[in-house]
């Protein structure tokens, strides 16, 4: 069965025909060539496929493309802008919070969602937010540091904005 769907992907509406069994992950990677989200397990365990749907992180391997009809989907490619990286990405770079990088797009999307919901997380909250994102390389410590730093940077930017006005 084929479905016509309309999905807002990284800010742009996309119309497409997808078969029922197409996963959101395949739709992004194969149909839209957005290869940032990775498939690490296909079973919801590794988090490498994490993207935001209506602002919430989900496993794109466990959602059908047709279920995303009408939704707002954000992938790692949608972060930052022409001028530069998103503060979360920036913090990952500065902290060398990555090695092979395969888990990183998913990790960053989980971090992004956390900071939108909770701009001042504790270390424990950061750990919880990324505990569904497996990383075999880094030992996670730097990733947690980076997210804490991104939160701090965002707060600093926010307060300087307030002060300047």
């Amino acid at each position: 069965m084929i479905h016509n769907i309309r999905v807002k992907v990284n800010g742009e509406w996309v119309e497409a025909c997808v078969p029922s069994h197409r996963r959101l992950l395949d739709f992004l990677r194969e149909d839209l060539d957005l290869i940032g989200a990775k498939e690490g397990c296909g079973g919801g365990e590794c988090g490498a496929c994490t993207v935001l749907v209506n602002g919430e992180p989900i496993n794109a391997c466990l959602m059908l493309a047709v279920e995303a009809d009408g939704a707002d989907v954000l992938t790692v490619e949608g972060l930052g802008d022409a001028d530069g990286l998103d503060p979360v990405q920036e913090a990952f770079v500065e902290n060398s919070a990555l090695q092979c990088g395969y888990c990183i797009p998913g990790m960053i999307m989980s971090a992004k969602a956390l900071l939108v919901r909770n701009p001042s997380p504790t270390r424990e909250e950061v750990v919880e937010a990324i505990s569904g994102n497996l990383c075999r390389c880094t030992g996670y410590a730097r990733i947690v540091d980076a997210i804490m730093q991104a939160a701090e940077a965002a707060r600093a930017a926010e307060s300087s904005k307030v002060g300047g006005e």
Binding site: L34, K38, T75, L79, S96, L98, G101, Y102, P105
Partner: peptide, 17 residues
Amino acid sequence: VRNDAREKVTGTARYAG
């Protein structure tokens, strides 16, 4: 700073798959 970091945080880095 790692020279592969930017590519990897933006999702630009390509793997075989």
